[in-house]
């Protein structure tokens, strides 16, 4: 089998992989920020809720998280009278990965927030900003910059974790590869998986490049 054939077949799964990656990352970040906010509250209930979710999610393998999302979420939603059985598999894949990665991202955001120099907040207050402006103008941007290396690592981890969605039958790049391999009775297995690894590596390189650009833009901001 020609390399170009392998390449084009595998690339047909790339949009699904990227869709999973982008949406899971967005939702995981949103949930992660909310979790970090909860766990930084003084309120013990809020803190407890966040810590409980974190413990549970971090203690569950991502593969299992996908299965739980796929089989569990429809049952959970049915309890409140919403039928999501007809949702596309892709949505369950995104849900599973988002839940899994939200816990890691929330810890990245929380630790970054705690690393911001408290003097920055005080300086914002003494120039007359209220707490909300101080947060959005000064603390939040610095938190994001501190969290950047961790977030980059987690995003790269998520690229690889998208391959786990084969377990609920989503035809992402990895599943396309195993499918192609099976169709050929495993004859071109090695070639197929080397090409697959190469494509994943390119995706990771693109992410690394993107983060390098962000770092370059903020090279003089030493937080």
């Amino acid at each position: 089998m020609r390399l170009t054939k392998i390449m084009t077949t595998l690339l047909s799964g790339l949009p699904t992989t990227l869709t999973l990656l982008i949406f899971s990352f967005i939702f995981a970040s949103v949930i992660g920020v909310c979790l970090a906010w909860l766990s930084l509250r003084r309120n013990p209930v809020a803190k407890g809720l966040a810590r409980g979710y974190l413990g549970l999610v971090r203690g569950t393998p991502p593969l299992l998280m996908l299965l739980l999302a796929y089989y569990g979420l429809p049952k959970l939603f049915l309890l409140v009278g919403i039928d999501i059985n007809d949702w596309a598999k892709l949505l369950f894949g995104i849900a599973g990965l988002s839940i899994g990665w939200s816990a890691y991202l929330s810890e990245a955001f929380r630790s970054a927030y705690l690393s911001v120099d408290p003097g920055q907040y005080e300086a914002a207050l003494v120039v007359g900003m209220d707490a909300s402006h101080a947060f959005w103008r000064i603390l939040m941007p610095q938190t994001l910059l501190i969290a950047l290396p961790n977030v980059e690592n987690l995003l790269i981890g998520l690229v690889k974790a998208t391959s786990l969605v084969y377990v609920i039958g989503i035809m992402d790049m990895y599943n396309t590869a195993t499918d192609l391999s099976n169709q050929n009775q495993g004859v071109y297995q090695l070639e197929i998986f080397v090409v697959l690894a190469f494509i994943y590596w390119l995706v990771v390189l693109a992410i690394e490049w993107g983060f390098r650009q962000i770092r370059k833009d903020y090279q003089y901001v030493t937080v």
Partner: peptide
């Protein structure tokens, strides 16, 4: 302030 506390991201 003693340690200036200029906003580092500004």
């Amino acid at each position: 302030f003693q340690n200036y506390n200029l906003f580092k991201n500004k």
